[in-house]
Design a binder for these strands. Sequence first.
DNA 1: GATATTCATAGGTTTTAGTTATGGAGATCA
DNA 2: TGATCTCCATAACTAAAACCTATGAATATC
Lengths: 303, 303
Amino acid sequence: MNITLRQLRYFKALAEDLHFGRAADRCAISQPALSVQIRELEENLGVELFERQPRALRLTQRGEEFAERANPILQAVDELGDWAQTARGRGLSLLRLGIIPTIAPYLLPNFISALTEAHPKVDLHVRETVTPRLVDELLDGQLDAAIVALPLDEPALVETPLFTEEMVLIRPNTDQNATPVQLDTLASMRLLLLEEGHCFRDQAISFCNINPNRPGGGLDGSSLGTLVQMVGAGIGVTLIPEMAIDVETRSAPVCINRFDAPAPQRSIGLAWRASNPMGEMLNELADIVQKAAGRGEDQQPAA
Amino acid sequence: MNITLRQLRYFKALAEDLHFGRAADRCAISQPALSVQIRELEENLGVELFERQPRALRLTQRGEEFAERANPILQAVDELGDWAQTARGRGLSLLRLGIIPTIAPYLLPNFISALTEAHPKVDLHVRETVTPRLVDELLDGQLDAAIVALPLDEPALVETPLFTEEMVLIRPNTDQNATPVQLDTLASMRLLLLEEGHCFRDQAISFCNINPNRPGGGLDGSSLGTLVQMVGAGIGVTLIPEMAIDVETRSAPVCINRFDAPAPQRSIGLAWRASNPMGEMLNELADIVQKAAGRGEDQQPAA
DNA sequence: GATATTCATAGGTTTTAGTTATGGAGATCA
DNA sequence: TGATCTCCATAACTAAAACCTATGAATATC
């Protein structure tokens, strides 16, 4: 009642050999098996494809037409097999990666070159937004992986820690320079923070043990760069991750203070859906990110 | 070990529904059956096509690629089914018809119009040559049918008589006109014949009971038209089938004599390979030729 | 007339596909 | 929190499909 690929393959062999015995050999089946399959194909179609003469077998006109349609199908199926073989062996082809904004600008340049070095053909799509969106899009299947601050505490996601980074205090140049500070001295300063939604804001708040209600008097910055400029203008102080130091403090009259141990720090990791069958490759991706961060030695398991 | 169309159909259903239960319903199988087939497809390919999450099923990147390749294949197979349905119902599409030269010019005009009336879309290829070639090409599968003089006596061929036609004597105008002649009076005349190979030559020879060795002194004509012209020039007399009278005697100074009964006649029929599955249609074709000959009432079975 | 070639058919076996029953893991709800 | 529900996977068994060997019929060949 239904055409099968097997029948099409047998038909093709018979159409080429025009001899049941030889065609059956080529198909590695017995002659009666071929006879039956061809008969069933013709019955299914309701069309006679072969003209059986006692001595000579030949395609009917309909058989010729059928061959012209059947052969491309078989070819397409073969190509599907080839595709599978390639797909099986090959690594990433498309990587839809999310990154939080407080990491993206500092990590991406290194990461992109490391990635294209390891996987020259990969097509990278980067999505830069705050963690909750990244998590949603991961769960949704819109992203393959995301670089975020750990932990996420999403049971459907796997997290692999990449590195930890310390936070540093940025103060106006007019303040006394370069002296390590204690965390608790922060409470007395006007601390400028990122807008709500950024995980870095929450981390800063929790590290400093300060009142989460507008510690900067509503003067939230939309990026670390903005915060640093604000500090340079003498409005207050801020925290930034050490990774951002080079880029952000270059053009502002600020000084950088590291904290005394134990310095506040956060763990950055790669997350993906536990069910993603590319898991193995995403582990490899984590290695690449780690190298790109140039901080493989800092790795430490997330809590 | 091998992709099947069944697997592709199931894959398509699942890729569309992204739900095993519903997709299985659509395929009219149970959910476990679908599960197994999908798993086997993935194992065959060595590629995971679906990402199974507890709540949400989704195509992997590979699965998307696979769908893009599998769907056209399924579509082509469906079209193959449509083609079969059409092919089953439809009549002739290509007709490779052979005709002997002593019939062709007189029958073809009527036949072609009758054929295109009955089968407007048919593609007609006409091959005009002598009977032995036609028979060879029929047996070879180069022709579908041929209009020839019966009997052919080829076991592999079926013959259907179409009509019989009498032969008439063509004499120069200077002879006494319009008097029916006896066959045996021919022996005394110089009879002009077609070249060797034409069945009509042999038929004329046998009808007249004359010596087959060059009765015309080597003056064989290559067509009935030539023969009539030669008669008009007073070289001798000839026989032509009555069908040819109108066309061939119009422009020559000749007169036509019918024979007394029993007049010499030949049986014209349609022949095709007994093994040709279009036999039914070729019977219909015979009817069309018969009507075209305008002599359906003359039909008589071949010996 | 005997033999060989070639395809079709028949009976029995193996393989494949399908069914129902069941299990487990994660959501959902009281 | 435990009970229930949804959803897919697995297992054991059954039905269907595909295949093989043996054999037959028709024709060509010696």
